[in-house]
Design a protein around this nucleic acid. Structure first.
Length: 217
DNA sequence: CCAGACGTTGTT
DNA sequence: GTCTGG
DNA sequence: CCAGACGTTGTT
DNA sequence: GTCTGG
């Protein structure tokens, strides 16, 4: 699963790395502790080049009555994303990249749960496979997204059973604008070398969003 | 037919 | 114990 | 994901 | 909007 992540970079690096043509919401600050319901940048391609848009983590389907869900939509299972009513249409027509520099998992132990940060070995930006939707209500429109998760491979070193689908740069365009089997074939681990490091329990509180979230244990 | 759900993970 | 908020 | 709340009425 | 349960 992926219930917390970070995006420690600057706006220009995001635009460069993801080849963004249009920054719709250019305001951006480094994020050390991104929690569900918060607004963070996603990358889309609506046919006129890639755009960067702030969206809410936790997908609200366009047909939602209340503009919220009573169930969790922060993750979508790769195994069923093509069929589930909440994700099906977004999987076919509204895929996105979710920029990140790492994500967090908690491992239960004798002394309670220990948070770990997972990054690419060597660091750098990565992209989770994401789905987005737009809900329209009286208060205006709400853009939101979900992160696709799959069975963890050996790179997770047994830390957790599930992990986000992390796309490679060569597959970004296919994920954003492809269709059919070629898109479905990306719903799997991509073999990146990952680095897992225990970090301070400071990260536990969603109210904390500063470099101390990455403090060594 | 209408009403109601629509999700994931981990733990018991 | 379970739901909501971040 | 974790942290924190979890309720009602009457009065200001 | 679309599927499932009754």
């Amino acid at each position: 699963m992926c219930g917390r992540y970070n995006l420690v970079t600057d706006a220009q690096a995001l635009v460069d790395f993801f080849d963004v043509a249009m920054a719709i919401d250019p305001v951006f600050v480094p994020r050390y502790n991104i929690a569900p319901t918060q607004f963070v940048p996603i990358v889309r391609d609506q046919g006129r080049g890639r755009d960067l848009l702030n969206a809410r983590w936790g997908l609200v389907p366009h047909w939602s009555r209340e503009g919220e869900t009573k169930y969790s939509t922060i993750n979508a299972r790769a195994e069923t994303v093509a069929e589930k009513p909440t994700y099906r249409a977004s999987f076919r027509h509204r895929r996105c990249l979710v920029p990140a520099t790492g994500f967090y998992e908690w491992k239960a132990g004798d002394n309670g749960k220990q948070p770990y940060q997972i990054t690419l070995a060597g660091g750098g930006l990565l992209a989770f496979a994401g789905l987005w939707d737009r809900w329209i209500g009286q208060e205006g429109e709400l853009f939101s997204f979900s992160i696709v998760v799959t069975a963890a491979d050996a790179s997770m070193q047994g830390l957790h059973e599930r992990m986000p689908v992390m796309l490679e740069p060569k597959d970004y365009s296919t994920w954003l604008t492809g269709s059919g089997d070629v898109v479905s074939s990306l719903l799997r681990p991509h073999g990146q070398n990952l680095e897992l490091r225990p970090v301070s329990r400071y990260v536990n509180s969603p109210a904390h969003d500063d470099p101390r979230c990455l403090d060594p244990v």
